[in-house]
């Protein structure tokens, strides 16, 4: 059923793209449909609103350069997601893999004490920042898969298409990534609470 819905969306997008008379109109249609998805993919990598918006703009300018070839793209959504993914990674290429350091431990100091509820833990932003640090410390293939899985607009099939891996590999990588995150988060919380 999900596959049928996805195929239907692809067909609908192709119809819209074929109705576009000029490359500019085709790009404008893509902007109207996918700006939020493109932004969230960029944000998942760059973790910064300003950088993410710059990457989104760069992405659509790259799309515009394709010109008349736009109408020949079979799956515009996945194709667009791949472009923004590459653009965001290029921007982030200068950053090294993040490791849990003193800054992370300092963030944990601000967490509520043992026995706090889940809502209390999630109320502050410190835990979110800790998670960002932990995700940054993951191996690259696990990190990329996990980051893309956090974007609501993408499913496992589309993630597999973007990364050029089988769909089963996407699920496997997600499981491994979650396991590592749980272990690290658990150890940090235990270290805080003694």
């Amino acid at each position: 059923m999900a596959g049928q819905v996805m195929v239907g969306e692809v067909i609908l997008e192709n119809i819209k793209a074929s109705k576009a008379e000029t490359p500019l109109e085709a790009v404008e249609a893509l902007v109207a449909q996918h700006t939020l998805m493109v932004f969230r993919i960029a944000y998942s990598v760059l973790r910064n609103h300003h950088d993410a918006e710059d990457a989104v703009q760069e992405c659509f300018l790259r799309v515009l350069k394709y010109g008349k070839d736009l109408q020949q793209v079979r799956n515009p959504k996945t194709w667009l997601a791949r472009i923004i993914w590459t653009a965001a990674l290029d921007r982030r290429s200068s950053r090294n893999t993040v490791s849990v350091d003193d800054e992370t431990r300092e963030l944990l100091e601000h967490l509520p004490d043992r026995g706090a509820s889940l809502d209390e833990l999630l109320a502050g932003k410190e835990l979110q920042q800790v998670l960002e640090k932990l995700i940054g410390s993951l191996p690259e293939e696990l990190r990329h898969t996990l980051q893309l899985s956090t974007v609501q607009e993408l499913n496992s099939v589309e993630i597999a298409g973007m990364l050029n891996i089988p769909e089963n590999s996407v699920r496997t990588r997600l499981m491994r990534a979650r396991k590592l995150l749980k272990e690290k988060l658990s150890s940090l919380l235990e270290a805080k609470h003694g």
């Binding site: 932004f39 609103h49 993410a52 889940l118 833990l121 998670l131 995700i135 974007v151 979650r178 749980k182």
Partner: peptide
Amino acid sequence: LLDSLLSRYSDAQP
């Protein structure tokens, strides 16, 4: 906790 954190990870608005 992890599910909640991950759901918010990219849930950003431009």
